[in-house]
Amino acid sequence: MSPRPGLRRYYDINGWSFVGPAVALILLFMAYPIVWSLWMSFQQGRGMRLSFAGFGNIIRLTQDPVFQLALGNTVLFFVVQVPIMLTLALFIAVLLDDPHLKFRGLLRTLIFLPCVMSLVVYSVLFKSMFLLDGIVNQTLLALAIVSEPIPWMSDPFWARVLLITAITWRWTGYNMIFYLAALQNIDKSIYEASRIDGVPSYARFFRLTVPMLKPVILFTTVTSTIGTLQLFDEARNIVASDTSAGTAGPGDSVLTLSVYIYNLTFRFMPNFGYAATVSYVIVVLVALLAFVQFYVARERDR
């Protein structure tokens, strides 16, 4: 059924005036830069001395060990960090959802608190806490968890652990709030009924909670995927050294695609074309993963 022409016009006038300002701003500040970078990805050269390169930049990707390292690191962070963080957030949210729990308001606030801290501040704090003689190693030594101080920032393995720890610290509470909000929307009588039926708690979690939270889980998974694949600030500021070589962590162990784009644009001989090509790798990855995540979520609907 198509709406009457008059109503349709009314709809369109209002529709366009409501979305107009946002669309205009997006066109100017997003669409134009995106088109520019797409055009740039077919250019090659130093600084502003550019020439058309066709698929030269894409061929270069296949021969570039630094790109491959950055891609590997980014995928590693995604595969390890996102599941850890979301599982933890979901688990905590479920525990905090228990109305009999004392101090739940306080606990919720405390666990959410990390995400009010600015990136610059938390990188400085983490840097100072994870120094070789810093508070974290002192504590681990005192508790006899380790016998030697852990070289957090000078060993590639530990640098990656540190980065994952930092991001998890910053974002777990943030994701938890989404789950908590969604849990509060769930009708508690379903739980009661299944509890009386003798369904064990883990089964309730997997058969009731998870399916009911699926839209939120999907939402947080997609946003976390985007966040991790674009990971830049933490990788550049916490572990990355500010020395002249500007590697991200020992042996470029925390070099992510975004940091590499930044290097190609601002640190190295400026190569805007190649940088644009690398960023489209991120776009393709995000699009692919988002598609897969939506697909998986949809399948289970049936």
């Binding site: 709809y11 369109d12 209002n14 529709g15 366009w16 005036s17 409501f18 979305v19 946002a22 669309v23 997006i26 997003m30 669409a31 830069p33 995106i34 970078s37 985007i226 674009q230 830049f232 695609l257 975004s258 784009i261 930044y262 644009t265 940088a275 644009a276 960023s279 991120i282 776009v283 995000v286 699009a287 988002a290």
Partner: peptide, 28 residues
């Protein structure tokens, strides 16, 4: 506006809008 006044054209623009979230800021 996108939710209340739906139209195919605006849905397409909305789709593009969501895509912009995927672009890393460094390149812009």
């Amino acid at each position: 506006g996108f939710e209340i006044f739906r139209s195919p054209a605006r849905e397409r623009i909305y789709g593009v809008l969501l895509l912009t979230i995927m672009i890393p800021f460094a390149v812009l």
